[in-house]
């Protein structure tokens, strides 16, 4: 295939199962970089709260490094905030800190029967997200796919109540946890549909809390998977299910969620996953975003990129958010290797 595709063509064809000019190199999770922020003159703590700054920051990895995507937001608090949680963006800190939930809405078991606001999509930063997606679409949306993400129901539950309690209750009172996740799944679908209306080309559902490091594959199958299925059924744009940590035992379940593609991190043995899921399944990830991309040498970056492709990933895709201080030369080395080695 001689023609060079735009990032958007490449990624959309990948999701459609059609041939591409080379392997795509993109992410469904945060990929703001200090390099990008510095060029724009923005502080990390601000970009979460300003639609234009968010959109411009998200576009930098494509503009500077030719990364095949533009993804926003950068934090994991959007849905929880819309549900009434208070967030902390650490505005006074000199360090790079991601926003966290400062105040949860469920404080004990009796408060799990939450009311979902009727105007959910007008709350918190949902309107800001719509605006940011719109700005990015106008800016680079013709040639670069604009993506976003939402949390999975279990992970979102862990944002709005104590994870400690959630984990114990998932064992002691699964009915209560199920009822909560059903509500949250509807919330997630609503938010995802808002992002779709705003123009995203693909979406990732991040269910990090449900990894086999934490929950048994059996619990994943009975407690989490039904809710994920109900979410993916409602999503129209190409979708990815991301779970980090140990996932080899659940990749089959993940693929059965109805997501178009699955995303795993460096703890997954991807060659084994590929064998399990067959040649056509879309498997992303496995690329260690910190130990390789940020603190590894350029050689390690190149070697890892080749190894991921050799092991059978469908796209080079960091297994988590990219830590912003990624050295520009490492980012370039990854892109160069994909452009060169990923041409099949």
């Amino acid at each position: 295939m001689a023609e060079i595709m735009t990032a958007k063509e490449r990624v959309l064809k990948l999701f459609a199962g059609e041939p591409t000019d080379r392997a795509a190199c993109f992410s469904g999770m945060g990929n703001a970089t200090t390099e990008g922020l510095t060029r724009l003159g923005y502080k990390f703590a601000q970009v979460h709260l300003n639609a234009r700054q968010m959109a411009e920051t998200a576009a930098t990895t494509s503009k500077i490094f030719d990364f095949d995507c533009c993804v926003m937001p950068f934090d994991l608090c959007v849905e929880a905030e819309a549900l009434g949680c208070k967030i902390n963006t650490y505005p006074h800190s000199e360090d790079l800190l991601y926003p966290t939930i400062k105040e949860k809405i469920i404080h004990n078991e009796d408060e799990m029967d939450i009311g979902v606001p009727g105007d959910l999509t007008e709350r918190g930063r949902i309107p800001l997200m719509r605006e940011a997606i719109g700005i990015a679409k106008k800016d680079i949306g013709d040639s670069v796919p604009v993506g976003s993400y939402v949390l999975g129901p279990f992970t979102l539950a862990g944002q709005i109540m104590e994870l400690n309690d959630l984990l114990k209750l998932s064992f002691k009172k699964p009915d209560k946890v199920n009822a909560l996740m059903e509500k949250l799944s509807a919330v997630i679908v609503q938010v995802a549909q808002e992002f779709e209306k705003a123009g995203i080309d693909y979406i990732t559902v991040r269910e990090m809390g449900a990894t086999s490091d934490v929950l048994s594959p059996r619990a994943f199958n009975t407690l989490i998977l039904p809710h994920l299925k109900s979410i993916f059924k409602e999503i129209k744009v190409p979708s990815v299910l991301h779970i980090c940590g140990k996932t080899n035992d659940i990749v089959g379940f993940m693929m059965g969620s109805g997501a178009k593609a699955i995303s795993v991190d460096q703890k997954n043995d991807v060659a084994d996953t590929r064998k399990k899921l067959g040649p056509n399944a879309l498997v992303f990830g496995n690329y260690d975003p910190y130990n390789v991309l940020v603190s590894g040498s350029e050689d390690l970056v190149r070697e890892t990129t080749r190894k991921c492709l050799d092991d059978g990933v469908s796209a080079v895709w960091p297994g988590c958010d990219i830590w912003p201080t990624v050295p520009p030369e490492n980012f370039r080395a990854m892109m160069e290797t994909v452009k060169d080695y990923g041409k099949q």
Binding site: L167, K168, S170, F171, V214, L215, S216
Partner: peptide, 14 residues
């Protein structure tokens, strides 16, 4: 041995 996971661990700790 992966017979117990984090929820069980937390309950044992309690």
């Amino acid at each position: 041995k992966q017979e117990y996971f984090v929820p069980e661990l937390l309950m044992c700790a309690d």
